[in-house]
Computed example of a mutant assay.
Amino acid sequence: MSNTPRPADTDEVLHGEDLGHGNSPAAWTCVFVMMLGALVSSVGFIIASSPVFWAGIVVIGLGLVVGWAMRRAGYGVGGSKLKNQH
């Protein structure tokens, strides 16, 4: 690695920049539904039931869809339905 300074026009991360970290109702709902799907899928794997396993996988996919839909509806970070807009 070289110790030469990087040009100023590169895309560097600003450490003081607020990233949001997905702290929104849409993100929390997405994660909760996906965790529920992972639990169902894990139980299906343990009891060797393919239908239960795949049902859990479907629930994980539904969690992504629910999170996306809630974000589009204004419940994501900085969304129009949230009171704590920055």
Rank of each mutant, 00 (worst) to 15 (best):
P5G: 05
P5Y: 10
P5R: 09
R6D: 01
R6V: 13
R6N: 07
R6Y: 09
R6P: 00
P7A: 13
P7V: 08
P7Q: 10
A8S: 13
D9N: 14
T10Q: 11
T10P: 00
T10C: 11
D11W: 14
E12W: 14
E12D: 13
E12Y: 14
V13H: 10
V13R: 08
V13W: 09
V13Y: 11
L14K: 09
L14A: 04
L14W: 09
L14F: 14
L14H: 05
L14P: 00
H15K: 02
H15G: 03
H15P: 00
G16R: 01
G16Q: 02
G16S: 08
G16D: 06
D18M: 13
D18Q: 09
D18Y: 13
L19E: 02
L19T: 02
L19K: 07
L19W: 02
L19P: 03
G20W: 08
G22T: 05
G22P: 06
N23Q: 07
N23K: 11
N23P: 00
S24Y: 01
S24D: 04
S24C: 10
S24F: 01
S24L: 04
P25R: 03
A26D: 02
A26T: 05
A26G: 04
A27N: 12
A27I: 05
A27E: 08
W28A: 08
T29V: 14
T29N: 11
C30P: 00
F32G: 05
V33T: 12
V33I: 15
V33G: 02
V33R: 06
M34T: 02
M34E: 05
M35I: 08
M35R: 06
M35Q: 07
L36G: 02
L36H: 01
L36T: 07
L36Y: 01
G37D: 11
G37L: 13
G37N: 08
G37T: 08
G37C: 13
G37Y: 12
A38W: 06
L39A: 13
L39N: 01
V40S: 05
V40R: 03
V40H: 06
V40L: 15
V43C: 02
G44Y: 12
F45G: 12
I46S: 06
I47F: 06
I47L: 11
A48F: 09
A48Q: 12
S49W: 10
S49D: 14
S49T: 09
S50L: 15
S50N: 09
S50G: 12
S50C: 04
S50I: 14
P51A: 15
P51T: 08
V52Q: 03
V52Y: 05
F53K: 07
F53P: 00
F53T: 13
F53A: 01
W54L: 14
W54F: 15
W54V: 09
A55Y: 02
A55L: 15
G56I: 11
G56D: 09
I57K: 06
I57N: 04
I57W: 04
V58K: 05
V58T: 11
V59H: 05
V59L: 15
V59D: 03
I60Y: 01
I60L: 07
I60F: 12
I60A: 04
G61D: 08
G61S: 10
L62C: 14
L62Q: 06
L62H: 01
L62T: 06
G63M: 12
L64M: 10
V65I: 15
V65E: 07
V65Y: 08
V65Q: 07
V66P: 00
V66H: 00
G67V: 05
G67Q: 03
G67N: 04
G67M: 07
W68E: 06
W68Q: 07
W68Y: 13
